[in-house]
C-alpha cells in the first residue's frame, strides 16, 4: 500500500466514516454539500460526518466554504491536484486491491483501539465487524 495512503488513513480518515466520505468525494468529485447533505448520502450520523469532513479539510483534501454568514459550511473536493491524486490512490487501494483493502481496515481498527472504547462500533464497508 502506498505510504501516502497509509498516512492519510491514520491521520485524516481515522475511521470508517472518514474513509466513506473520502471515497464519496472520489466517486462524485463535483460534490458541493453540507454535512447534513453528505450524512444523508452516506447514511451516517451527521455529527460524525461533520467531524470527518473537518479532518479531511484539515488534511487539505477538501475545501470548506462558510455560507450565510457562518450559519453553515459546505464542502467540496480541494482544487489541489495532489488531493485528487491521493483520493484516486485510496480508491484504487480500497476498491481494486483486496489485500490493500484488508490493510486499510486493519489500520482503522487499530487506530480505534488506540483511541479507546468510547468510539462507536461500526460495520466496515466490506461487511467486516469489530
Amino acid at each position: 500500500m502506498d505510504a501516502r495512503v497509509a498516512e492519510f488513513i491514520t491521520k485524516h480518515a481515522q475511521n470508517l466514516i472518514g474513509l466513506d466520505v473520502a471515497l464519496f468525494f472520489q466517486a462524485n468529485p463535483q460534490t458541493f454539500d453540507t454535512a447534513e447533505g453528505l450524512a444523508r448520502r452516506t447514511h451516517r450520523d451527521v455529527d460524525q460526518v461533520r467531524l470527518a469532513l473537518e479532518r479531511l479539510a484539515e488534511g487539505r483534501v477538501l475545501d470548506v466554504f462558510s455560507r450565510s454568514e457562518g450559519r453553515y459550511q459546505c464542502y467540496a473536493l480541494a482544487r489541489d491536484p495532489a488531493a485528487w491524486d491521493l483520493l484516486c490512490s485510496l480508491s484504487e487501494a480500497y476498491v481494486d486491491d483486496l489485500d490493500s483493502r484488508k490493510q486499510i481496515v486493519r489500520l482503522l481498527m487499530r487506530r480505534r483501539r488506540e483511541d479507546g472504547p468510547n468510539q462507536p462500533v461500526t460495520d466496515g464497508p466490506d461487511g467486516s465487524s469489530n
Binding site: 462524485n28 460534490t31 458541493f32 453540507t34 447533505g37 466554504f65 455560507r67 467540496a76
Partner: peptide, 21 residues
C-alpha cells in the same frame, strides 16, 4: 460537471454573490 448537492445549498449557491455554482 455532475454536481452532487442538496436543494438548499443549490438554491443558496445559485443566488448568493459568492455562490460557487
Amino acid at each position: 460537471k455532475v454536481i452532487c448537492t442538496s436543494p438548499d445549498v443549490f438554491l443558496e449557491e445559485l443566488s448568493s454573490a459568492d455562490g460557487i455554482i
